[in-house]
Simulated assay, not measured.
Amino acid sequence: MKTSEVDFRFPVIGFTTDEDIWGWPDLDTLTKCGSMTLKDRMQDGMELIDADGRRWRVLSVTRTGRAGPLLSLARLLGAPPQSRIEHELEALEPVSLKEVQARARASIKAHPEFWSEGEEGRDAELRNRLADVDGVTTIGSLLETLGLDTFESY
C-alpha cells in the first residue's frame, strides 16, 4: 500500500533501522524530505506508528516531484531543496503506548548525542528526556514532548 492510501491518525512517529526517532504532525510533512534522505535511503525499513498505535514498515520511498516552488524565500536563504515522496508500506501488528515508550527510550539511549548539548551534564539531560517519555499518556504526545524532527531538512 502507498502512503496516500493509509488513513493515518496524526501525529505519526517513526523509528529508523538505526534506532533514531522522528515525528510528523501531518501528511504534508510525512511526504516531504530533503535530498540526503533519498540519496542515503534513510527511510528504508523505517517503522511508522500513528497516534492509534497502528504500524507500518517502509519498504521503499519514491520521489514523486518537487515539494514547494522552485523559487522561495527558504531556497534563497540557502535551505536545501525538498522532494515530495510516496512510501510503499507493509502493514504490521499494532503496538501499545508502553511498547512505543520502550522504543523511544531505546532510541534516546542509542543516540545520546542527539538529546544533549554536550558531554557536561549529559547524564542529567538524558534522565530528564527518559522521564519525559515515561510521562506521556498518548503515542501522539511524543512528537511535542520530545520535539521530534522531520526529514524535511535532510
Results as ranks from 00 to 15, higher is better:
46 M>L: 02
47 E>I: 15
48 L>Q: 03
48 L>F: 00
49 I>E: 01
49 I>Y: 02
49 I>L: 00
50 D>G: 00
51 A>N: 12
51 A>D: 07
51 A>H: 07
51 A>W: 07
52 D>K: 07
53 G>A: 06
53 G>M: 01
54 R>W: 10
54 R>E: 12
57 R>Q: 04
57 R>S: 03
57 R>F: 08
58 V>Q: 03
60 S>N: 13
60 S>C: 00
61 V>Q: 05
61 V>R: 08
61 V>E: 05
64 T>H: 00
64 T>F: 09
64 T>S: 06
64 T>G: 00
66 R>S: 08
67 A>T: 12
68 G>C: 03
69 P>T: 15
70 L>E: 13
74 A>V: 14
76 L>E: 13
77 L>P: 06
78 G>Q: 00
78 G>K: 00
80 P>R: 13
80 P>L: 03
80 P>I: 11
81 P>Y: 01
82 Q>V: 08
83 S>Y: 15
85 I>L: 06
87 H>V: 02
87 H>E: 12
87 H>T: 09
89 L>F: 12
89 L>P: 03
90 E>L: 09
90 E>I: 07
91 A>F: 01
91 A>G: 05
93 E>C: 13
93 E>M: 15
93 E>L: 13
94 P>K: 11
94 P>M: 13
95 V>F: 01
96 S>A: 08
96 S>R: 06
96 S>H: 05
97 L>T: 04
98 K>V: 12
98 K>I: 12
98 K>F: 10
100 V>G: 03
100 V>E: 02
101 Q>Y: 04
102 A>D: 06
106 A>P: 04
106 A>G: 05
108 I>P: 01
109 K>N: 07
109 K>F: 08
109 K>H: 09
109 K>T: 09
109 K>Y: 03
110 A>H: 04
110 A>I: 10
111 H>T: 09
112 P>F: 00
112 P>V: 05
113 E>G: 09
113 E>K: 14
113 E>T: 07
113 E>S: 15
114 F>T: 14
116 S>N: 09
117 E>I: 12
118 G>H: 05
118 G>A: 15
118 G>T: 10
119 E>W: 10
119 E>G: 11
120 E>K: 10
122 R>W: 02
123 D>H: 07
125 E>I: 05
125 E>L: 02
126 L>C: 12
127 R>D: 11
128 N>R: 14
128 N>A: 14
129 R>E: 09
129 R>Y: 09
129 R>M: 12
132 D>W: 15
